[in-house]
Design a protein around this nucleic acid. Structure first.
Lengths: 227, 227
DNA sequence: AATAAGCTGAAGATTTACTGAATTTTTTGT
DNA sequence: ACAAAAAATTCAGTAAATCTTCAGCTTATT
């Protein structure tokens, strides 16, 4: 397995049996795991434990999963995987709107859950997976910070996502369409010009006046060149 | 053509017109292509054809794209690119949950699809897509760079495409008509003289003053000779 | 020398990207 | 709930590069 050390999971489910079963398996996989049996305590626990990923049952007495999800998302940069009993599409849409990152319907295999967790980590906390963050950049996804030449950059959310995307795909041409899809999302409607606008703002903040760092490949897209 | 040889694609769409159109283009790009008109047969075909990438229409009679996607993912290590009608946001969310790797909304250009496919290959099967080294040239499609004798060439989009085409078809006579079709596209209207113009500009940049590298075969076309 | 094919430089036309600012939307603090 | 601030998005004007055409010229072939 990968070096998953240091990745913190919070399990929330009202059924102790499931909780125990999952906890055992995930600890065994090298995660740091905490558990909670209801939504309320999950939220408070999360605020101090600061998990990377919360695995959250939708159906719970008291505060339901959706509400918990919303609050967790507000609290910080955390990925939420929700568990639902039935394969309810409505639930899924609702949940995703509230910020859930992924869904699983019960029953599921442990391997399946593991796969989802890893997919999440890859997507949201790529630097925790031993990916080499190269050049003058350091991407700290936990703190949502990017450090460039020892300086912490002041970035808006979108700027952060865009820069992170470009750093992680350094050395490759990234078309505006692709950038739009990956950073803004597939459902973005609007002109590609917005990519140009944000690239400019990044160039400003990186003092990349001559476009050496973020190169324009006319007709093709942009490419981040490190060193 | 490029050394995309060995990359297997499975196209699934219920519209024969689209299917045929895409198949022709993709075969022409050097992929190994199979097609299927419905979800059920796609799944069975996939199990024996073992494609690297499946391009899958969401809207199909019978088993819909989502279901097909889920089953394909279960079957093995395959990348799925789904095609959806424009603005079907819910579809996208739903699809990504079920494991699709990328999305494209119709209508899309062939080039766009090609870019997505290559991006997928890069991500999932990086060993299949290396840079092409031919004589003094190194063509790096990921970076969109051509290196000649250790120097990165500064090329316009069309220059890049033309040079790449000539390098990949090195040693063969390329008629102006063929070049026009492949580089400019079948729908280009205009004089063949433009090929001459671009060849000149390439010769300039390659310092091929005596036309040793790009040889003119009067009445036949051009041929790139590497040592 | 006559002919056809290819070469060339330069001039428009067109496409693409950049930029500054206005407008709208979202977030934040009270 | 409200106002203020920040962020996201749009837009129009500008700049720049790229593409295309063209006319006159050169070269190869017979």
């Amino acid at each position: 397995m990968q070096k998953l050390k240091g990745i913190k999971l919070l399990l929330v489910d009202d059924e102790p049996t499931i909780l125990e079963f999952l906890e055992m398996g995930l600890v065994n996989e090298g995660f740091e795991v905490q558990t909670s049996q209801d939504g309320m305590s999950a939220v408070t626990l999360a605020s101090q434990f600061e998990p990377h990923i919360v695995i959250l049952d939708v159906m719970m007495p008291g505060m339901d999963g959706f509400e918990v999800c919303r609050m967790l998302k507000k609290q910080g940069n955390v990925a939420v995987i929700m568990l639902t009993a039935k394969d309810e599409v409505e639930d899924r849409v609702k949940g995703l709107n509230l910020g859930a990152d992924d869904y699983m319907s019960k029953p599921f295999s442990f391997e399946e859950l593991l796969a989802r967790i890893q997919a999440r980590i890859r997507n949201q906390f790529p630097n925790l997976l031993g990916e080499v963050v190269s050049g003058p950049f350091r991407v700290d996804d936990r703190r949502r910070e990017i450090i460039y030449k020892e300086h912490v950059l002041e970035l808006s959310p979108t700027e952060y996502e865009l820069l992170k995307f470009m750093i992680l795909n350094q050395g490759m041409v990234l078309s505006k369409t692709m950038i739009l899809d990956k950073v803004w999302g597939y459902d973005f409607v609007g002109d590609e010009n917005i990519v140009e606008v944000y690239v400019r703002s990044l160039r400003d903040k990186l003092q990349d006046k001559d476009h050496q760092l973020i190169r324009t490949l006319r007709g093709a897209g942009y490419r981040m060149d490190l060193a």
